[in-house]
């Protein structure tokens, strides 16, 4: 294939001019979804990890069950169930809601695990020092344990946030007009591969800086350790 044809196939200027607004709309929706998911899933996961550190065996059993379930299940399964199955049982959720709900629960499971690992890494003397000064369980958690535990969990939390944002592409399966959905519908209207290129570039524009940033941050952390 000549370079010329390669460019008109994947970088056709006319197609770019026609479809870039659609891709931008998709980017806005992807960003909105990402924020909604990260806020809800992050808060839920953090709360579950805090609850788990209270160490009530019965409750912890259910927290572990919850985390295992959402870490082991491919997210497309609940997405299809909620979107296609629930209406037949009399409850209709929008595609946006289904995607937001599913991915928030998936993120919550991973955040719970990361935060719990951080909490567990704090030496028991920290709890004892705080409790023996008269601080209650919640105060100790908020002012002594979490500030240290979250710092430990930060790298895996950022990785999870990036990963879950990438998963918003699953919305295309149920027609959430996020980037991938916009790009592939534009591709089928136009019969050109250029919108797909635009979509891929849009994802790169969002994630490449994050990936490079996290690589940089990790290497800095590694130096500090060494």
């Amino acid at each position: 294939m000549s370079i010329d044809r390669f460019f008109t196939t994947f970088f056709d200027p006319a197609m770019i001019a026609r479809y870039w607004p659609m891709i931008i709309e998709g980017m806005a929706l992807t960003a909105l979804l990402a924020v909604a998911i990260i806020v809800c899933g992050g808060v839920l996961g953090l709360l579950l990890a805090c609850l788990r550190s209270r160490r009530w065996p019965a409750i912890n059993f259910f927290i572990v069950l919850f985390a295992d379930f959402w870490r082991a299940l491919p997210p497309l399964v609940p997405i299809l169930l909620l979107y296609f199955g629930l209406p037949n049982a009399g409850l209709e959720l929008s595609a946006f809601t289904v995607l937001w709900l599913t991915l928030s629960l998936v993120l919550a499971a991973f955040v719970e695990e990361a935060c719990w690992a951080g909490i567990r890494a704090i030496r028991p003397g920290q709890w004892e020092a705080a409790r023996s000064s008269g601080m209650g369980f919640v105060q100790t958690l908020c002012w002594v344990i979490l500030p240290q535990a979250l710092r430990i969990a930060l790298p895996s939390l950022t990785n999870r946030a990036i990963a879950i944002t990438k998963m918003t592409a699953l919305g295309t399966v149920i027609g959430v007009p996020e980037i991938l959905n916009q790009a592939s519908s534009a591709q089928s209207f136009s019969g050109s591969a250029t919108p797909l290129t635009l979509g891929a570039l849009a994802y790169l524009a969002i994630f490449l800086p994050l990936v490079v940033l996290s690589r940089w941050a990790e290497s800095r952390l590694a130096w500090k350790r060494g």
């Binding site: 990438k166 998963m167 918003t168 592409a169 699953l170 295309t172 980037i179 991938l180 979509g199 891929a200 994802y203 790169l204 994630f207 490449l208 994050l210 990936v211 490079v212 690589r215």
Partner: peptide, 11 residues
């Protein structure tokens, strides 16, 4: 980094 930045479904 390129392949980590692209969602697998997009790829």
């Amino acid at each position: 980094d390129l392949f980590r930045a692209l969602p697998p479904l997009v790829l």
